[in-house]
Amino acid sequence: MIEVRMHGRGGQGAVTAVELLAVSAAEGGKWTQSFPFFGVERTGAPVQAFCRIDEKPVRIHQNVYEPDVVMVLDASLLAVTDVASGLKAGGVVIVNTKKGRGEIGIKGGKVFIVDATGIAVKHLGRPIVNTAMLGAFAKVTGLVPLDALERAIRHRFKGEIAEKNVAAIEECYNSTA
């Protein structure tokens, strides 16, 4: 079972992102579960959301403490949260940042970076990175086919908005390093 922990701030759409991840991984033939860390909903407050992806039905209902994949939607969280806490050996951390890999000070795990904010502003006109970051997830983990992710996006959003999100996802997919 692969466990994903997403760190964001209230209002950044972490809950929607893990749901889209669960839906698209399920479409790719996996068994999934996603849910928010149960906190008080305040805009800007640090939040967590979780996703599990497995080859068999997911039976457990608990928070993710030892993730295989950590995603950080907002690099300002790195100063206040130990995002790599509990990261499994060989685990990966994907960070939305303009900085270099060596400059963000994450200890442990394999770190990937992408300027998802820049990409989101370019395609969506707003710094909303939750969907774009799923492209980075698809690239790094290979757990979610890009086309399944894009179908989930087109199911969730309509018309032009959907296509702009798809473009952001594709650019993030290609830019993550």
């Binding site: 893990v18 749901e19 399920a26 068994w31 999934t32 849910f35 928010p36 149960f38 997911v58 209902h61």
Partner: peptide
């Protein structure tokens, strides 16, 4: 059903 653990969990 358990609040949050089922009400808010996305499952197949």
């Amino acid at each position: 059903m358990d609040g949050f653990y089922i009400t808010h969990a996305v499952e197949p």
